[in-house]
Computed example of a mutant assay.
Amino acid sequence: MEIARRAAGISPSPTLAIDAQAKAMKAKGIQVINFSAGEPDFDTPEHIKQAAIDALKAGFTRYTPVAGIPELRQAVCDSLKVRGLSYEPANIVVSCGAKHSLYNAMQVLLNEGDEVILSAPYWVSYYEQIKLAGGVPVVVNTDATTDFKLTPAALKAALTPRTKLLILNSPCNPTGVVYSRSELEALAEVILSHGLMVISDEIYAALLYDGLTHTSIAALGPEIKERTILIDGVSKTYAMTGWRIGYAAAPRPVATAMTDLQSHSTSNPTSIAQKAAVAALTGSQEPVEAMRCEFEQRRNRILAGLRELPGVMCNQPGGAFYVFPYIGKLFGRRFRGQVLASSTDVATVLLNEYQVAVVPGIAFGADPFLRLSYATSMTQIEAGLERFKAFVGELQ
């Protein structure tokens, strides 16, 4: 049996693979510290769960409009006003998670051979989704000296006549970096002067620390807004990863195309999950702030612990729930006779020998790094840091 080339060329998600392996080990009774999962460890707030129960009891279990129920699309519009953005429900497309929204956007924007600027480190699925849409990922490497941010000069240098799209992610997975308003304004100048489209992935917008505030590139003016597809969802903000509700806010022609595409794939997202999402967006935001505060404390602890390890360096993330430590100084050293030559080597040893699950940086286009999620308890963070310390101490 021959598999289609577009499917055969897909690389599986390393983050999901490692998370699955860690969970399989846990199921066997192995005490794994799991820093790989990209989901909050908090429960979905009670008022959101109750909204789903109420919808179920009311028999709200049938098909809905493809792009989402009007109530939810209006709730999305209202929530985006906080970011200084004005949208109509016709601009909103609700999908089965933000990943699905991203997929839909790339499918309707890209033609065969269109180039997409992607700054590394990048979230793993961007690269594969670009390829699935027939596009060509053009990776622009960043480093700690610019806090892993794409600069206007680097963006300009990567442009060709085939460049169609830029993907922005702020706060960023995996680095946690947050673009300031002035940094986004400088990028917007390049985007507009070269007629690019931009996908702005803002799924972590509510999880900011150190007093930082979120700026959407779409809020910088009507011109850039008309060239932006904003992606968000309820998964990270409301601890609703399994509910699978994401959304796009886009110019009307793009929103219409995404809706038409979705009508031939998943159709509408789950009806009762949509009712839960309405409750999330319109109800009390106190659980979000409580979760954010806890994440900030965890970030401070894991960052301090990593910085104490010889040969490990780590920039301070301003948002999301990841740290992205540099481990390049560990390369070339030996663990029980094995030479560590890559982030994959380090991650493999940590999981197999110390039962600590991390994601190798190569998955994000940055090999001398690891991604650790601090979406786990402080007790687990402390235990994981001790195991990491033991690992570094055994290197020769």
Rank of each mutant, 00 (worst) to 15 (best):
Y204F: 10
Y63T: 14
A279H: 05
A8G: 12
E71M: 15
V278I: 15
H214A: 10
Q338A: 10
L330F: 01
F369M: 15
L330Y: 06
T282Y: 01
T160M: 00
H264L: 11
T282I: 05
D143M: 03
D232T: 07
G97C: 07
A273L: 03
K23L: 12
P12G: 08
F324R: 09
S36K: 07
R292E: 13
Y322A: 03
C77V: 12
G68S: 10
I10P: 04
A249V: 08
A154K: 13
K164M: 03
L72M: 01
V288H: 05
L102W: 04
A276G: 14
L159G: 11
A186V: 10
F60I: 13
A277N: 01
P152E: 07
Y179C: 14
I3F: 04
I117C: 13
V116G: 13
I30W: 01
A366V: 06
G68Y: 02
P14G: 03
V93P: 09
P14F: 00
S267E: 04
R62H: 11
T160P: 09
Y374W: 04
L85I: 12
T44A: 07
G365C: 03
Q316C: 15
G113R: 00
M378G: 11
A37H: 11
A4L: 12
P360I: 05
V356H: 05
R387W: 09
N315R: 06
M291G: 00
L281P: 12
G393V: 07
A249P: 00
L85T: 09
F364Q: 00
P174M: 03
E382S: 12
V278E: 06
C77L: 05
E296S: 11
A4K: 08
Y63H: 08
S342L: 03
V116I: 10
I69V: 11
L395W: 07
E386S: 13
V190D: 04
P310F: 10
T175D: 04
C96E: 12
R387E: 11
L187W: 10
F148K: 02
Y322K: 06
I327P: 04
L230W: 02
A157G: 12
A219I: 08
S200D: 08
Q21F: 05
A37I: 10
G134R: 04
I30A: 10
R162G: 08
